[in-house]
Write a protein that binds this DNA or RNA. Structure first.
Lengths: 112, 112
DNA sequence: CAGGATCCTATTTGATACTG
DNA sequence: CAGTATCAAATAGGATCCTG
């Protein structure tokens, strides 16, 4: 049980935060799950302080990790919808607890 | 309930990640809880890739948020032990789930 | 509407040195 | 041992322009 330094490939907590470690990721996943916000523009509106570039990056990252699915509808104007994958859905219990914790510990004084 | 941008005062997930949002925080809390690693030097050894400065900053941040307690023993050489506060302990269910998720989705090995 | 490319600044981070 | 201070390097982030 004691031993050497934490190996990122071996410590399960390190692995988790390496996959979904940013603050934006958690909030994006939460919106996808809890509020069924799915479209790019809608996410952008909800996350009013996120930049265009940042949102794209975070979505790309989540898609790369196979936590979200990107469905593109070939239309003019284009329409894209994001949703949790099966793997992403395995995070739901964590999302629920995190949101509950935030709710209980005072989201009152917080800026986004 | 739906519609406008996220109300900064109301989004509980945003609050949570603003309090404990960094990857290091989660791992540090996990070590404090799960492995009873408490001393500064011990944490530094376990988190081999963290820099000296970063560890200090993260610990200061966690202490500022009242998630961990810093106990200093006036000795030569000095001895400092960190532990979860009551507030910090309310995060344990989240820590457990995150670590479990990492164990199931990432590497085969667990630290237990 | 969705989002990539680019430029440029701000913040974070790491190495190193120093202190009680 | 357990930190803090400082400076340079690396990285993240925002604003803007461009495309299908």
């Amino acid at each position: 049980m004691k031993g050497g330094p934490i190996d990122p490939l071996v410590c399960p907590m390190s692995y988790t935060v390496s996959i979904v470690g940013g603050k934006w990721q958690w909030v994006i996943l939460w919106l996808l799950y809890n509020e069924k916000v799915q479209r790019y523009g809608e996410l952008k509106k909800r996350l009013s302080t996120i930049s265009h570039k940042m949102l794209s990056q975070q979505l790309n990252s989540l898609e790369f990790e196979q936590l979200i699915h990107r469905e593109e509808y070939p239309q003019i104007p284009p329409r894209v919808e994001y949703s949790l994958t099966e793997k992403g859905e395995t995070l739901i219990p964590i999302l629920k607890l995190m949101a509950m914790w935030g709710g209980q510990n005072g989201s009152q004084a917080h800026i986004e």
